[in-house]
Nucleic acid binder design. Structure first.
Length: 118
RNA sequence: AAAGCAAACCGGCUUAUCGUGUCGUGGAAACGCGCCAAGGAAAGUCCGGGCAACACAGGGCACCGUACUUCCUAACGGGAAGGUGGCGCGAAACGCGCCAACAGAUAGCGCCACAGAAAAUAAACUACCCACAACGACUUGUCGCGAUGGGAAAAGGUGAAAAGGCGGAGUAAGAGCCCACCGCCCCGGUGGCGACAUCGGGGGCAUGGCAAGCCUUACGGGUUGAAAGGCCAAAUAGGCCACACUUCUUAACCGAUACUGCUGCCCGCGGUAUGCGCAAGCAGGUGUGGUUGGGUAGGCUGCUCGAUCCCCGCUGUAAAGCGGGGGCUAGAUAAAUGAUAAGCGCUUCAAAAAACUGAAGUACAGAACCCGGCUUAUAGGUUUGCUUUUAUU
């Protein structure tokens, strides 16, 4: 598998898995993100990105933030290496649009948190 | 040339690295290669239609919507052309532009704040005119005054609006009481498909405003909405059929009553329940086998070739229609169409012109079944038309 790709299999799309993640998963806050994660028995890490409609009324802004987070995960996901895999949800909680470089940095930090806490 | 107004259109480009989705192609697979990949509003969800499911014998009333005319259209509350009224520009026009909830107020009910005498069967304030008891004056039969009785609706002031307007004649003072012109109403002619325009005759005014209070007239209106709907495999509740065992009461039809469906109500027509009447033989439970299969989560489909787009010709004042040629132009589903970096272009500013340099800015905004409109947001730019100002000929 290529290093920087991000296929559909790496995204959470099943309703049951999402419900399980939010009911049983543990979470921590890392500005501007809230991260929810749960170890799973699937064959790879799966992520979910969410931006609240109340904080960003325009769809253009929500798309931009989602794309930046996705790129941050895609370009750095090789740093998250472990013997087990996780379901991870990134929820954007800030009220303003943050630069890409900061988001990238925070995502790398989140990987360290997850591997420590498991 | 500049400014203003209106209409139509455009609304960034290139490269590098790493990525995403549909389709095509190679491959057993992993994956590789190629093509394409947001908008003028994709937005608001305000109208109209296609498509789909469900419902529907029919009639009346209610409810909701629309409202100058003709045309366009699949349809519309949209558009085109025109009529009428109002406003703006202008010296002015039969000019140009903008706006209109633009059917009916002699079908009926209701309302008309404040001010004002009075707000709709007019008049109770001031002012005007006539008569005249009492009183006053003096030139002693006249004048003044005004309780009171009557006339009039012209004048003042109030108001958004004061009972057709203006002028004349008339009168005690006045009044469509009478007359001319204008307005209004009625009838007829002419032109126009029509809204309407115009001409002639008659009426003496009867008819204040509000329909965005109720209402009247004419026309239209099933409900839901892609989370619609269809298909697939799995597990399972339930239904149905056959057989066996078991228990003993009660099924169907018709009438009656109650509830309910047809947008609401009534009539009408259906459906269900009750088991009172009439009537008479099957009804319930358990097990086995077969068959069917609601809902839930998942996958596939619906899904993008269409009232389609571009060009040319013809018809029409135009909206638009017809014919010919060419093109295929997003299909995601916890939701792709991107991220990062560099450069270019454009606009503004740095006194003025050109070049250079620097700084700042580069909008509104993201498809979710598909179309036709409307409304709202939008940095900057282009074109066309009209008006005004200045310059030149």
């Amino acid at each position: 598998m290529k290093v920087f790709s991000l296929k559909k299999e790496e995204r959470l799309s099943k309703k049951k898995l999402i419900q399980e993640l939010f009911e049983k998963g543990s979470s921590f806050y890392l500005y501007p993100l809230r991260v929810v994660f749960l170890p799973t028995n699937s064959k790879q890490n799966q992520i979910l990105i969410s931006v609240s409609k109340t904080n960003f009324k325009r769809a253009v802004d929500r798309n931009t933030i989602k794309r930046r987070i996705r790129e941050g995960y895609r370009l750095n996901k090789h740093a998250l290496s472990s013997d087990i895999f996780f379901s991870i949800a990134y929820i954007y909680t800030a009220r303003e649009i943050v630069d890409s470089s900061i988001i990238h940095q925070k995502i790398i930090q989140s990987f360290n948190e997850i591997t420590e806490r498991k």
